[in-house]
Simulated scan of single mutants.
Amino acid sequence: MAADKTWTYAELTAALERNIDINRRLAAKENEDGKRAYQLLADGALQLWNSVTTGWQDDGDRARLQALVDAIRPAEAN
């Protein structure tokens, strides 16, 4: 494990975007309960990103990323 690894805001945000996209693609293959599970995984990643980047976020990123997570929700949750 590299103790000297640092992450830029852009790298953290790109990693979250990839995570959300993976969860979105996996959710598309699932029933409503499965979709909800993948949405919750993506939301957990978003909450971690938010806690790490609060005070450093670019304008609009939080809302944009939340919308991506919200789009994973099953039909009855929208």
Rank of each mutant, 00 (worst) to 15 (best):
I20H: 06
D61G: 00
Q39A: 12
Y38R: 08
T13A: 05
A14M: 04
N50M: 08
W56F: 13
D43A: 06
A37W: 15
A37G: 02
A28C: 05
W7C: 09
L16F: 02
A27V: 02
D21K: 12
A77V: 12
E11R: 07
L48K: 12
L48Q: 09
D21N: 02
T8W: 07
N31Q: 12
E30L: 03
W7M: 11
N50F: 10
A63K: 13
A63H: 08
G60L: 05
I20C: 02
A28W: 09
A67K: 12
L26M: 10
Y38P: 03
A2V: 07
D21W: 12
T53P: 03
Q66L: 15
W7L: 14
M1Y: 11
N31E: 07
D21F: 09
D21G: 03
T54W: 08
N31K: 11
K29P: 01
R36Q: 10
E76Y: 15
V52K: 04
A42L: 01
W49K: 11
A14C: 02
T8C: 03
A27E: 03
L40M: 13
I20N: 01
A77D: 13
D21Y: 07
T53Q: 08
Y9K: 04
E11Y: 02
R25A: 04
D61I: 01
E32P: 00
A75D: 14
R62P: 04
R62K: 11
